[in-house]
Computed example of a mutant assay.
Amino acid sequence: MKFYLPVLTLALTSLMACKKVEVPQGKEEMVRGKWKLELDNDKGILKEYTFYPTWDTSKKPIDTLYTSNSSSETIQDTIRRVNGFPECKLDDFLEFGEGIDGVLNTGEKKCPSGETSEVPIKWGFKDNYTRMYIYEAGEMFLGNDDLVGDVVELSESRIKLRYQVIRPVFFNGVYMQDTAFYTIALKR
């Protein structure tokens, strides 16, 4: 009996002394949940484009961020502000779920043209968490259903992405590609 008492005391002491080790939260777990477009005050969806056409595509490859050079000028204008969004869209939010599944929830106020309550989306990260994709959420991103953007900021309360849209345009009898960059911020 004398032998069991010290062993029992040692076992109880070691159990009580153990502390729970906090495991850092992964980026996927951190962003799961509800997110709205940041539209407070003068914030919205920022559009950047080149004022003069740049013919030398080697200076700004498609996979990298645009940096202005001496032959072109970057113009920035906030193209959607709170007063620019239809009221029925102001309460829309994204909900990132388990795996790559999520929904675009169209909120309480429905647009007159008829909206479903939820639109299934796909989301996730690429390239070692430097890029994020959100597919099928075009209603929130100016019609861009397949958004793949560079992660500019990522925290528990804010996600900021920068993505590009390339559209064909006909200018002075020549078909060209019009490239615009958009920056969006999502908040909890």
Rank of each mutant, 00 (worst) to 15 (best):
M1F: 06
K2T: 03
K2E: 09
F3I: 06
P6N: 05
L12I: 11
L12W: 06
S14T: 10
S14K: 00
S14Q: 03
L15N: 09
L15H: 07
L15T: 06
A17L: 14
C18A: 10
K19E: 09
K19N: 06
K20I: 00
E28H: 10
E28W: 02
M30W: 00
V31Q: 03
R32H: 02
G33R: 05
L37K: 01
L37C: 03
E38K: 12
L39D: 04
L39E: 03
K43E: 11
I45E: 02
K47W: 07
K47D: 05
T50N: 08
Y52D: 01
D56Y: 06
T57A: 11
S58M: 08
K59G: 09
K59Y: 06
P61F: 04
P61A: 02
D63C: 11
Y66H: 15
Y66D: 11
S72M: 13
E73C: 05
E73H: 13
T74N: 12
I75Y: 10
D77T: 12
D77A: 13
V82Y: 10
N83E: 11
G84A: 12
F85H: 03
P86E: 14
E87A: 14
D92T: 04
L94Y: 04
F96P: 05
G97R: 13
E98M: 08
G99P: 11
I100W: 01
D101H: 13
G102C: 01
V103Y: 13
V103H: 09
L104H: 14
T106F: 06
G107S: 03
C111M: 09
S113N: 15
G114Y: 03
G114D: 09
V119C: 04
I121S: 11
I121G: 10
W123P: 00
Y129D: 10
Y129I: 09
T130L: 02
R131D: 05
R131F: 07
M132T: 10
G138S: 10
E139Q: 10
F141K: 08
L142H: 00
D145R: 13
D146G: 05
D146Q: 15
L147Q: 02
L147F: 08
V148K: 04
D150L: 08
V151F: 01
V152H: 03
S155F: 04
E156F: 01
E156M: 02
E156D: 13
K160T: 12
L161C: 02
Q164R: 10
Q164A: 07
P168E: 05
P168F: 00
N172W: 00
G173A: 05
G173N: 09
G173I: 06
V174R: 01
Y175I: 12
M176D: 10
D178Y: 12
T179P: 00
T179E: 08
A180K: 14
A180G: 07
F181E: 15
F181I: 09
Y182R: 09
I184W: 06
L186Q: 00
R188N: 15
